[in-house]
């Protein structure tokens, strides 16, 4: 399967690891990621206001590029996924926004939400399959207790995101099992880390982050994994003494697939 891949700004910069490990692992699993040409920023924040049209355009450009290639659009960054998926939903369901966006973009054929938007994790679950992934794992992380941190953007609003059960998700836990480790369930995994506050109000963000680390640690976790660069930054930089190490899930995937050794052997 070939996907139109949308990396997003952060994955080209501070979150290079999330991107690099994701690409290498996908290739090893036989999944082709074709980076969308000249992609622009997703918009970073989904505009909830129905009269915000310009802030939706860059997402639609990416969605339309995938449509023209006849490929599903794949994302890795939680925020990009959230924005693109919701904008796509608007284009499919909101006639007013659809008309205005298309009037502005003047595409050959109007874009009406045709592209299927998938997160990398959904690709692993639905395309590769966690059972297949398990078989492909060369270095199972036996005995490692890992806490999945979902945050907000992948799950909510569940009616649009349709990613997983918003209150009791399981996709990252299933991923953790597939790479041979042991998932740890803790209450704060789907609560906000306060990432958007991280710049302006460090104190508020730190309180949230502390609660998350605390909850995960008490549940027995040794490590937290995430798919979001902002959560990653916030959980790590704003964590206090009690903080657990935080990694991108793609890094663990890469190591579990034995790609590190493979590279060393070259």
């Amino acid at each position: 399967m070939t996907y139109s891949y949308f990396p997003g700004c952060t994955l080209k910069n501070k979150a290079k690891d999330l991107d690099r490990y994701g690409r290498l692992s996908a290739a090893a699993l036989g999944v082709e990621l074709e980076e969308i040409e000249e992609w622009q920023c997703c918009g970073a924040v989904y505009p909830q206001a129905s009269d915000e049209i310009a802030t939706r355009l860059s997402s639609v450009r990416a969605l339309n590029a995938a449509k023209e290639k006849g490929q599903p659009l794949l994302t890795l960054c939680s925020a990009c996924h959230h924005v693109i998926k919701r904008v796509n939903h608007d284009l499919a369901t909101n006639a007013d926004i659809r008309t205005k966006v298309n009037n502005y973009l003047e595409l050959d054929t109007p874009y009406q939400g045709e592209t299927k938007v998938l997160h990398y994790l959904e690709m692993l679950r639905d395309e590769v399959g966690f059972d297949t992934l398990k078989k492909a794992v060369k270095n199972p992380m036996k005995g490692t207790k890992i806490a999945a941190y979902y945050g907000c953007l992948l799950l909510r609003p569940s009616g649009v995101m349709s990613f997983d059960d918003p209150e009791n998700p399981s996709i990252i836990e299933d991923f953790i099992r597939a790479i041979g480790a042991e998932p740890v369930i803790y209450s704060q995994r789907n609560e906000c880390c306060g990432g958007y506050m991280a710049m302006e109000d460090k104190g508020a963000a730190q309180d949230r982050v502390e609660k998350i680390h605390d909850s995960a640690r008490k549940a027995g976790a040794e490590l937290i994994i995430t798919a979001c660069p902002l959560c990653m930054y916030n959980l790590d930089v704003n964590g206090k003494e009690n903080k657990l190490p935080v990694k991108y899930f793609t890094e663990l995937l890469y190591r579990a697939l034995g790609l590190e050794e493979a590279k060393d052997n070259v």
Binding site: C9, A44, V45, T55, A79, A198, M199, Y233, V237
Partner: peptide, 17 residues
């Protein structure tokens, strides 16, 4: 408000918001 690690996403989103 910047620090070493701050992801681009945080800056872009605060400008957007």
């Amino acid at each position: 408000l910047l620090d070493e690690e701050l992801p681009q996403q945080a800056i872009v989103s605060s400008m957007r918001k």
